[in-house]
Design a protein around this nucleic acid. Sequence first.
DNA 1: CAAGTATATGAATCCCGCT
DNA 2: GAGCGGGATTCATATACTT
Lengths: 243, 243
Amino acid sequence: MSDWTLHRGDALTLLHTLPTGSVDAVITDPPYNSGGMTATQRTNDTTRGKYVSGDAKHALPDFDGDTRDQRGYLAWMSLVLGQCYRLAREGGPLLIFADWRQVPVTSDALQAAGWTWRGIVPWHKPIARPAKGGFRRACEYVLWATKGSVDANRNPVYLPGLVTGSQPRGEKRQHITQKPDEVMAELIRICAPEGTVLDPFTGSGSTGVAALASGRAFVGIELSDRYATVARHRLASIQTTAA
Amino acid sequence: MSDWTLHRGDALTLLHTLPTGSVDAVITDPPYNSGGMTATQRTNDTTRGKYVSGDAKHALPDFDGDTRDQRGYLAWMSLVLGQCYRLAREGGPLLIFADWRQVPVTSDALQAAGWTWRGIVPWHKPIARPAKGGFRRACEYVLWATKGSVDANRNPVYLPGLVTGSQPRGEKRQHITQKPDEVMAELIRICAPEGTVLDPFTGSGSTGVAALASGRAFVGIELSDRYATVARHRLASIQTTAA
DNA sequence: CAAGTATATGAATCCCGCT
DNA sequence: GAGCGGGATTCATATACTT
């Protein structure tokens, strides 16, 4: 039987209400607060303007919480990851997505929150826009950290140093920054078998889908009503197929 | 005809003596000052102790300049990259290698020196040791920056967002941290055709080899007598075969 | 000579025990 | 109690070697 909960509301507020030591792993993809070179671009554009090419035809809704500058992002993310630290059990892992621009500030935030930084796992997207006069931006980055020392005996896995997968397209794509299932299926293995995974920025719920599909439990938080509904549908359908 | 110079001595000292605006690109692989979880390990151990596996049989010599902590590394690298900035022409690119732990401090240093950060290109090494209970450390990172705006018309290339290649082995390997030729051959294309490439940490000279082999000129600096000699031999042999 | 087999090893890290 | 050294770990790949 699948086991999941999805809270709708602000991540920082709701994290305070959850019990200490109640999750085995935290895997999340926060709003990057990136995408614009200038502060004005970052705060004025909608998320669609920043992350979706002008010629894209699909019509996915914007998401909130994407208007912070780097200092604000550091302060906010430190608080969020500090709460996640409290909720995680000793030795539990954290995986957090970041684009290239947010890798330094994200590494600062997770360390400020008490996590021990363990490494970077690039996520390679084979389908990426070419860039004239320079390097294609084909990767995002997953920062890996642990609460204290690695508990290799509890979860003796050998995971790859690089994950590959293209973003879902067409019907399958429910969120602007949705992660491919095969990528999440690799990453979820960092959580001990049958453990509970927390994702305070659930979005369309790809982390939860991977957790349930692999026999793990899931606790999610999502601010947007619309995406919370999308995530509930996806999670419920896993429950059905896995039962 | 190949065109190269190799200065033997301290990078920071010698960079001051080179003329402003004299190079088209800076591509370098500094000592990472990494390796080891504790400050003592990082600053006291030799490069062999830090970077060479306990069961390795090769006898490559240590290299110097790898004993700084993060603050020292930031200060020193900012000065070095500031001089590189002076030497680069307007619009010229910088590529600098870093391991996962040094990505944030390296991005700080290059921006402190005036460069505009443009992205990260992961270098994937398929041959990497597995890690129990976590992710294999299979990547190093190339940080890409420019002096001012990207000059895409001068060098209208389309470069990959990820490079792959295994370290040279056996006879071909002359340095503990030698980069594979196929990786350098990709990266060198960021320099305008027939331009001049600067590498203030030449090591065994892989950057120079890629530059000369692709019809570019090369200016190198190397502290160690021993590696300067190795680099001179490699560069001279390219000169012969390319002539 | 092609194909299959054996071997070496990596910009480590963790754990343990001694100083 | 912190610092330090020694030993085990274990997979993808290049290379050498054998059939």
